[in-house]
Computed example of a mutant assay.
Amino acid sequence: MSTRLGDLVERLGGRLIGDADKQVVGIAPLSDADASHITFLSNPKFRTQAAQTRAAALILSAADDEVVGPAYPGARIVAANPYAYFARAAQYFALLNAHVPVPGIHRTAFVDPEAQVSASASIGPHAAIEAGAWVGEDCVIGAGCVIGRNARVGAKTRFHPRVTFLDGCRIGERGIVHSGAVIGADGFGFANESGKWIKIPQTGAVTIGDDVEIGANTTIDRGALADTVIEDGVKLDNQIQIGHNCQIGAHTAMAGCVGVAGSAIIGKHCTFGGAAMVLGHLTIADNVHISSGSMVSRSINEPGQYTGFYPLAKNAEWEKSAVIVRNLPSMREKIRELEKNIKSLGEDKE
């Protein structure tokens, strides 16, 4: 389906320069766009390419428009944040072309008589909704999903196929949970007695706010006593592990394979690069940004960018560096001894 540029700008804002009646069908990269597409410029280093794109319209900042505008023949949409505008425009085109699930419960799904499912919700094949569960308006529960006893799914939340959402867990409105995610499995809680492990019952749940997206095969463990908490707007990529009793602050984002150990408290508006690790029982302040592959081994009290890994090197060079690091304690003692000797020589001269 296509839309008028004027309708798009009326919906999303921005300043349109050019033909408001031009019809466009979607968004494409600068290099691939044709006369039926919108494209966007969010990095000034691509200004030359933007001026040559064949797209019908270009989303760009006011600063880029001053440079690119005179050379580009198509329409322009000037926006304060072109990348965010692109994201919202992409959402709009996706909505225009999306398959709309039919409300109702598939004949192969199981819904316990004590569960409550909104008449506007769509329940897919072989889904199971257990006693006391509540599924809100316009929810989509994909094929093979499991919603446990007394779990709650807020309005307009979508579970892709094979999501497991266990007993007592809660998610707010407009959430997206991708296939294979497991929310509410037992946390890793054991007490050691004479060398044997005694399981600690995990009696908390998982509480998730509004507008949260959880990636494929990501796992969020239930709390031991209190709940694990994921606040509004959090974005979790694929294959992330969130341990029991963690708290993830609003609008924090984590890339794939991040691991957060139990009882860590992470602030709002943080970002974590892929494969970053956070040890348990730590506290991380708001607006902290952790580089990919970093290990957070202590609490962080101030916002900023933090990196904790050794730069990549050829193996032979890395082995030499490792030997030096291993010998640092003895080198430190030798330096201290030299400092004492030098001080002693200075005193003798006086």
Rank of each mutant, 00 (worst) to 15 (best):
A253R: 12
H269W: 11
G13A: 08
I17W: 02
G274F: 13
T3N: 03
I200C: 09
G148K: 04
T157D: 08
K235I: 15
G346S: 15
T219C: 15
Q239N: 14
I59Y: 05
A133W: 05
I105H: 01
P303S: 07
N238I: 09
N43D: 15
D138Y: 14
G256K: 04
E339R: 11
R149L: 07
G69I: 07
A316V: 13
G148F: 07
R170P: 00
A20G: 04
G223H: 07
T271F: 06
Q116I: 01
A56G: 13
L30W: 01
V278L: 10
I230Q: 05
T271P: 04
K45I: 08
T3A: 14
K334H: 12
G184C: 09
A255Q: 11
G259R: 03
Q305T: 13
F309W: 13
D19H: 05
C139R: 01
I290P: 04
A316R: 15
V278R: 05
A131K: 14
H99N: 12
E337L: 11
G142E: 06
A84D: 12
A313K: 15
N43P: 02
P73L: 11
T219N: 12
E350K: 15
I17H: 10
A255K: 11
I284P: 00
S118D: 12
G104I: 06
D232P: 06
P44V: 07
G273C: 10
G136L: 03
L58Q: 11
R47V: 04
A56F: 05
G189R: 00
H251Y: 13
G256A: 15
I198G: 02
D112H: 15
A151W: 03
K196F: 08
G274M: 12
G18K: 08
D211V: 06
V78W: 00
N81M: 01
Y92I: 02
K196T: 13
M254K: 12
I141G: 02
K349F: 13
A71W: 02
S194G: 11
G209F: 10
L95D: 14
C169A: 14
S2H: 11
D167S: 11
I176P: 00
G69N: 07
E337C: 02
G204I: 08
V182S: 05
Q52C: 05
T3M: 10
S31W: 00
I141S: 03
Q247D: 00
A79K: 01
K45M: 08
I335Q: 09
I105L: 05
V111G: 04
A84E: 12
